[in-house]
Simulated scan of single mutants.
Amino acid sequence: MLQGLSITKQENDGAYCGSFFAMASSCEVLVECSEALCATQIIEAVFTEAKRIESKFSRYLKTNIVYKINHSAGKPVCLDDETCHLVDFAYLCHQLSDGLFDITSGVLAQVWSFDGSDNIPDRAQIDKLLPLIGLHKVTWQAPYLTLPKGMALDFGGIGKEYAVDCCLAKAVDIAATVPVLLNFGGDLICNGSRQNGSGWTIGIESVVGVKPIVLSLKKGALATSGDVNRYLLQKGIRYSHILNPLTGYSVIDAPRSITVAAESCIEAGLLSTLAMLQGAQADPFLAQQSVDFWIQK
Rank of each mutant, 00 (worst) to 15 (best):
L86M: 14
H71F: 11
L79N: 07
I43S: 01
D127A: 08
F47S: 00
V46C: 05
I42C: 05
L129P: 02
A50L: 12
A90D: 04
K68C: 14
D122L: 04
I43A: 01
G99I: 06
D115V: 02
G116L: 02
T83A: 11
L100H: 09
Y60G: 10
D88E: 11
L130I: 08
V107K: 00
S55W: 09
F89D: 11
W112T: 02
S72F: 09
T104P: 02
D88K: 12
Q110W: 01
C93Y: 06
V66H: 08
F47M: 02
N70L: 09
S117V: 01
V87T: 06
C78E: 15
A124W: 03
A73Y: 13
S105H: 03
V77K: 10
G106N: 04
V87I: 08
P121H: 03
I53N: 13
G99Q: 07
D80G: 14
V111R: 00
V77A: 11
Q125C: 04
S97Q: 07
G106I: 02
D102I: 04
K56M: 14
D118V: 02
L92W: 07
G74C: 05
A45Y: 04
Q110R: 05
Y67G: 10
L100N: 10
K51T: 08
K75F: 08
N70C: 10
D122S: 03
H85S: 15
E54R: 12
Y60F: 14
E82H: 12
I103F: 07
D98P: 06
E49L: 12
T104L: 03
Y67C: 12
H94T: 07
K75I: 09
K128Y: 06
P121I: 01
V111L: 00
D118F: 01
S117T: 03
F89N: 13
V77S: 10
W112F: 01
V107H: 00
G74V: 05
L100R: 13
E49M: 13
C84Q: 14
C78T: 15
I120K: 00
D88V: 05
E82K: 10
V77C: 13
R52A: 15
N119Q: 10
L129N: 04
H71K: 09
S72C: 10
D81F: 12
L92F: 08
Q110T: 05
H71E: 11
K68I: 13
F101W: 07
L130E: 03
A50E: 11
E82W: 09
L61S: 15
K75G: 07
K68L: 14
Y60K: 11
V107Q: 00
Q110G: 03
S97N: 08
E44W: 03
I126Q: 01
E44Y: 04
N70K: 09
V66L: 13
S55E: 15
K56H: 14
N70A: 12
I103N: 04
N64Q: 15
Y91S: 08
S97A: 08
D88F: 06
K56G: 13
L100G: 07
D102L: 02
S117I: 01
E44S: 07
V87K: 02
A90M: 06
K56A: 15
V77R: 11
A124H: 05
T104Q: 02
L129I: 04
I126F: 00
D122P: 01
A50G: 14
L61R: 15
D88M: 07
F57E: 12
D81K: 14
C93D: 11
V66E: 06
T63A: 14
A73K: 14
A73G: 11
V111K: 00
P76K: 10
T63Y: 11
S105M: 06
S58K: 12
